[in-house]
């Protein structure tokens, strides 16, 4: 899997390309841990290049969102992990596992970045 990182003022964008499975999910976990360690808790995942996701990948995403949401500036403002551009097959896995309602999903990255 290829992860491209783009830093905005307030938000970090991680674009994923390839397969997010048992082999590659530690790579994403590490990338997210690095951002958290820097105090960067507002993340957008661009999933448009994602070809495949299995449960270890889902696990990294849910753990990341739980962690990010613990970080708060005010009651209304704080950290989050938001996801943009889910390809149909990945969306299907989200639907099967109830992940669709666990995340704020966006149709494009600009909208997702701007939502913070």
């Amino acid at each position: 899997m290829e992860i491209t990182h783009k830093r905005f003022n307030r938000v970090d964008l991680l674009a994923l390309k390839g397969r997010l499975d048992a082999t590659t999910s530690p790579q994403l976990k590490q990338e997210i841990e690095k951002l958290f360690a820097d105090g960067r808790y507002r993340l957008v995942i661009d999933a448009s290049g994602l070809e495949y996701v299995s449960s270890p990948g889902l696990r990294v995403l849910i753990e990341a969102r739980k962690r990010a949401r613990e970080w708060k500036i005010t009651d209304l403002e704080g950290g989050d992990v938001r996801i943009a551009n889910l390809p149909p097959r990945i969306k299907e896995v989200f639907d099967l596992t109830g992940f669709t309602s666990l995340f704020d999903l966006f149709d494009d990255t600009t909208e997702a970045v701007g939502s913070f």
Partner: peptide, 14 residues
């Protein structure tokens, strides 16, 4: 909901 969501068991469920 997210706060109560357990992270395990997804593989067998799928």
């Amino acid at each position: 909901p997210l706060e109560e969501r357990q992270v395990g068991g997804l593989g067998i469920y799928l």
